[in-house]
Design a binder for these strands. Structure first.
Lengths: 226, 226
DNA sequence: ATGGGTTTTTGTCTCTTTAAACATAAATCC
DNA sequence: GGATTTATGTTTAAAGAGACAAAAACCCAT
């Protein structure tokens, strides 16, 4: 079906998660052209001939969301010969968690994309290519990482309450956690800074705000939550 | 330095570990041509336009070593624009552990390779490209996996003694383990089948042989050794 | 101002698992 | 019988999981 003389094309796709409106969401773009015209897809693009894979992913992340300085990690390389209907495209997927309040979706309509939007991961539309599979794999990996290092801070604003932190964990792990045990565990890790501020929220007891103190991403052996 | 119009080339390189002569070794091939003519390198090759990445890695593994049915896992994709001196080559690295007694190095001298040999990982020669980096990363990942699932069985013959198993772990983790605790732990996991055979070895007490019973690769949460 | 509703905050106990340390007897060969 | 290697249990301490209840702070409505 393919001529063996055809060359490969190499792209990168970026899975960006955030928490908005109490939901875990992923950033998608709507395609302007075939294939999959009008369908939602992960932000992605061709890797330039003289940039590293990491640089390509960072560039694309910045182009779509204007976000920088992010925990961005190579996820997996997807290379099924049939994943792209027209040609052989191998894609190196990256994933990131970002704070929703850091985000300015600086989208200027262009020739490739007609829309950029956050979608709840629990109700995704039909996606282009194998992007659904990529997102699912990314979620799985995010959960695995969450057990070992507290990457959830990437999802939260600079100042947050323990309840917000717990909700982030519950959303990613998709299960409820015990409130007292959760707090106990996190406070014992000594990675949170207790602030002298409180939420001036609504009709309830104000909650103390915390910020992450030292963020040591790859340290911390041992489980957080299982 | 590169024209942006140049196309990417995509290869796969396979890191194959085994235990031979009481050492952890990696399979290398000697290159017949430039670049890096005469240097040792990982077995690798171009991904065909209509095969999956996994298939490409399996094919190359088979071409070089005649080994099949192997725990083969995508490791990482290396894409530094300067990793290949002549052109832009992105390589998708895989790694595998194999039993030394399964191996028939069926090497027929050809136009690309002049030699195939196992090299102790502790004393590697100068390697082509970034292959040293790939091997080191692979070792790191192997160690991480070893903590969670007992993949070391891939390195051992069908029948083995507990001492051999322990030595495999010690070689990969590069530290000594307590004999009693090691045996206790493994026997409690109920993944070994106790055979009614013994080594008819040399001048010492014969050791009982074991084989792996059910091999559940991705199961088994929880640490094995840390 | 009072009371009801809601959310935050905090500590203890149990049970299980894990880590680490440690010594002696048995089987074989010479 | 001497050398070597296999085989085997117990104890201790530490860490982790999980279950569980009551008081305090705030808002609002009456």
């Amino acid at each position: 079906m393919f001529k063996e003389t055809k060359t490969h094309e190499v792209t990168t796709d970026v899975v960006i998660f955030t928490i908005k409106d109490d939901q875990l969401k992923v950033l998608l773009v709507k395609r302007a052209h075939e294939p999959f015209k009008g369908k939602w897809a992960l932000p992605g693009g061709y890797i330039r001939i003289s940039e590293t894979l990491d640089d390509a992913a960072l560039r694309i992340l910045k182009e779509k969301t204007n976000v920088q300085n992010i925990y961005l990690e190579q996820l997996y390389t997807f290379g099924d010969p049939l994943r792209h209907p027209n040609s052989r495209v191998i894609t190196c997927a990256y994933f990131a968690l970002i704070r929703s309040d850091d985000i300015v979706l600086s989208f200027e309509p262009n020739t490739e994309i007609t829309e950029v939007k956050w979608h709840p991961v629990n109700s995704l539309p039909a996606l282009a290519f194998d992007h659904k599979e990529i997102i699912e794999y990314s979620l799985k990996r995010t959960r695995e990482r969450l057990e070992f290092c507290p990457i959830a801070f990437q999802l939260l604003p600079q100042k947050f309450t323990l309840t917000e932190l717990q909700k982030a964990y519950e959303m990613i792990l998709m299960k409820k956690l015990d409130k007292r045990n959760f707090r106990k565990k996190f406070l014992s890790l000594a990675i949170l800074k207790e602030l002298d501020e409180y939420t001036k929220s609504g009709s309830k007891r104000p909650a103390r705000l915390y910020s992450f103190d030292k963020i040591t991403l790859n340290s911390k052996r041992g489980h957080f939550f299982s």
